[in-house]
């Protein structure tokens, strides 16, 4: 699998593109890290309100979404194994499974947000205003952080669909799959963020 590319002029450096991807992941970690600090400080300042507000969230939906994201992380990791073994069909199938799971996550999220909003729990609502500062902060952070995370899922959907197309057209293949690897890294980052969002919003009540 040594790529000498002596007779072509196309410059290619997979290691460099991977480092670039990691650097992007670090900026994302710092972005969400900052939000986690905001969350922790406000939780420290309003412990009772945060505990009660977190009790409003549905642990079952949160757990289901955690398991969905964990499985999707596995399917995209497996798609890289399949690609390395030169199994194009399986790669596409596994990427398709990842897409399906990502959609399932978003559908869950839609119903979850929908039920919160129908109960009058959304930023700027009268009900939250009556509850006071702590609850307003909790739900503000809940919508912002899970919303930003959901935005990453949507971007991931587009990127994974794009990679599927490239695999299908054999522009990504068993000796040239840096794009697939980097997409995998991005998807695992989305999973990593959720691993911390889940206990902080759903479990710590």
């Amino acid at each position: 699998m040594e790529q000498t590319s002596g007779n072509t002029h196309i410059h290619r450096d997979d290691e460099a593109s991977k480092i670039g991807m990691w650097l992007f992941i670090f900026t994302e970690m710092l972005l969400f890290g900052g939000l986690f600090i905001v969350y922790s400080i406000y939780r420290y300042l309003h412990p009772v309100a945060f505990e009660l507000a977190a009790g409003e969230l549905d642990v079952a939906v949160g757990t289901a979404n955690t398991v969905i994201l964990l499985i999707s992380s596995m399917t995209i990791a497996m798609s890289i194994t399949a690609m390395q073994k030169g199994n194009k069909k399986l790669t596409i199938a596994l990427l398709g499974a990842t897409l399906f799971l990502a959609l399932a996550f978003l559908v869950n999220k839609y119903f979850e947000w929908g039920s919160k909003i129908s109960h009058g729990l959304y930023p700027g609502s009268d009900r939250l205003h009556e509850f006071g500062h702590g609850d307003t902060l909790f739900f503000g952070l809940y919508y912002f952080m899970t919303g930003l995370h959901a935005l990453h899922i949507i971007i991931g959907l587009v990127v994974i669909a794009f990679v599927m197309y490239r695999v299908h057209r054999e522009m990504v293949h068993s000796t040239k799959f840096a794009l697939l690897e980097n997409t995998g890294l991005y998807w695992h980052l989305v999973d990593l963020i959720w691993i911390f969002l889940f206990p902080l919003f759903y479990l710590v009540t």
Binding site: E2, D13, T81, T175
Partner: peptide, 11 residues
């Protein structure tokens, strides 16, 4: 560029 495509395959 000898790093290209040189990867450990995870089972």
């Amino acid at each position: 560029m000898e790093n290209n495509g040189k990867h450990h395959i995870v089972p």
